[in-house]
Amino acid sequence: MSAPIRRRKTSSLIVLGIVALALLTMPFWAGSYNLRLATNVLLWVGLALSWNVVCGYAGYISFGHIAFFGIGAYVTAILMQPGVGWNFFATLPVGAVVAAVIALAVGFPTLRLRGAYFAIATWAMAEGVRELATVASITGGSGGLVLPVKSDDTFFYWCMLAATAGAYLVCFLLLERSRFGYKVKAVRDNEPAARAQGINANLVKNQAFILSAVIPAVLGGINAYWITFINPDSSLNTILTDQLVVMVLVGGLGHIWGPVIGGTVLYLAQQQFVVLFGDSTAYIVLVGALVVLVVLFLPDGLVSLLPGSRRLNLIRRFIRPRATTTTGSS
């Protein structure tokens, strides 16, 4: 291993260690506001990770991904109602299983198609789930459901940290360090060639879609218990999917660090703009400008600016010769 590679890996480990230490000790030094802010950042990072699985790795655009978030939220809320009385932690795997079953039911027929068909199918799924939640009595209809109150921000921070860190670890091991990940990328890049190599493309795509559905379902259950009240507008709003799309595109589509960077940067920017300007209008303008700049100059997202990335090296090579030429001419 060359010295630059060793230095790069050492630097990455140091940064990861600092981030891990900050996250693990945050409840002991951060105030209540910062702890809630960090919990929301972890929530959006986890959701962005899940969308990156289906779009960045599998190559399918989902416009209804927030449906799985809402499914997890409603399963937890329903099972924790006074007449049922389930333990909070017992509701999370149930929500994950329900989301997985629905993902299989939707993905099995639609993942055989390419282009806009899958996107339209997922959008229709999200709208269907939202309409069902609006009219069904078990979901509380448009009035929503109230959950038992637990006033402990530290508890929900640990829950969200565990869920998001677990999601990142699963995505990293399955999509970056396993045969399954290579199969998913092979199907994404050239499905006929992958089939010719003996890969069951339909099975691989459905497995990736199910993985992308389980993560938001767990996060939705945690969030429902945290905010203590859910309704179709708060948990099944398709606008939330649009935010996921922007976060992943800005951070870096198809990169394991892309959703982490995009989710963190954009959520913190949104909160800062709300504090400064009192509404989200300025934030929307910022996001629009940022998306245009990323598409034009950083098509791989902000992740391409990380040390050791290929694009950053190209930028350095472009800058250095010009600096040398300018110095020589003077």
Rank of each mutant, 00 (worst) to 15 (best):
residue 41 V to R: 12
residue 36 R to V: 11
residue 38 A to L: 11
residue 44 W to V: 14
residue 27 P to A: 04
residue 30 A to V: 02
residue 25 T to L: 15
residue 42 L to V: 00
residue 35 L to E: 14
residue 28 F to S: 11
residue 44 W to I: 04
residue 37 L to N: 13
residue 51 W to P: 05
residue 46 G to W: 02
residue 34 N to Y: 12
residue 52 N to W: 08
residue 27 P to L: 15
residue 30 A to H: 09
residue 29 W to A: 12
residue 30 A to K: 15
residue 24 L to C: 14
residue 42 L to C: 06
residue 27 P to M: 12
residue 48 A to T: 06
residue 30 A to P: 04
residue 37 L to A: 09
residue 53 V to I: 12
residue 32 S to E: 13
residue 40 N to F: 08
residue 46 G to H: 04
residue 31 G to F: 06
residue 37 L to R: 14
residue 43 L to G: 00
residue 49 L to C: 07
residue 36 R to E: 11
residue 50 S to A: 15
residue 31 G to W: 07
residue 47 L to G: 06
residue 41 V to K: 15
residue 30 A to W: 14
residue 27 P to S: 07
residue 47 L to K: 02
residue 40 N to L: 10
residue 47 L to M: 09
residue 26 M to H: 12
residue 50 S to N: 04
residue 38 A to I: 07
residue 48 A to W: 05
residue 34 N to C: 07
residue 45 V to E: 06
residue 34 N to I: 01
residue 53 V to T: 02
residue 33 Y to M: 09
residue 41 V to N: 11
residue 41 V to S: 09
residue 49 L to H: 10
residue 35 L to R: 12
residue 47 L to R: 02
residue 48 A to R: 00
residue 25 T to Y: 00
residue 25 T to I: 06
residue 49 L to I: 14
residue 32 S to H: 03
residue 46 G to P: 03
residue 46 G to M: 09
residue 37 L to G: 10
residue 37 L to M: 07
residue 41 V to E: 13
residue 34 N to A: 11
residue 26 M to D: 06
residue 51 W to C: 02
residue 25 T to S: 14
residue 37 L to P: 07
residue 33 Y to H: 11
residue 44 W to R: 05
residue 47 L to T: 01
residue 42 L to H: 03
residue 47 L to P: 01
residue 45 V to F: 00
residue 36 R to I: 04
residue 29 W to E: 00
residue 25 T to K: 03
residue 48 A to H: 00
residue 40 N to A: 11
residue 51 W to F: 14
residue 45 V to Q: 05
residue 38 A to W: 06
residue 35 L to S: 08
residue 43 L to V: 05
residue 42 L to I: 02
residue 30 A to N: 04
residue 48 A to N: 05
residue 29 W to L: 04
residue 39 T to E: 10
residue 29 W to G: 05
residue 40 N to T: 07
residue 42 L to E: 00
residue 28 F to P: 04
residue 26 M to E: 05
residue 31 G to N: 13
residue 43 L to M: 14
residue 26 M to S: 14
residue 42 L to D: 01
residue 44 W to P: 06
residue 32 S to A: 15
residue 49 L to R: 01
residue 39 T to S: 13
residue 29 W to I: 05
residue 51 W to A: 08
residue 44 W to F: 13
residue 46 G to F: 09
residue 44 W to A: 02
residue 53 V to C: 06
residue 39 T to L: 07
residue 28 F to C: 10
residue 31 G to M: 11
residue 44 W to L: 13
residue 53 V to Y: 07
residue 50 S to H: 05
residue 30 A to Y: 09
residue 34 N to D: 15
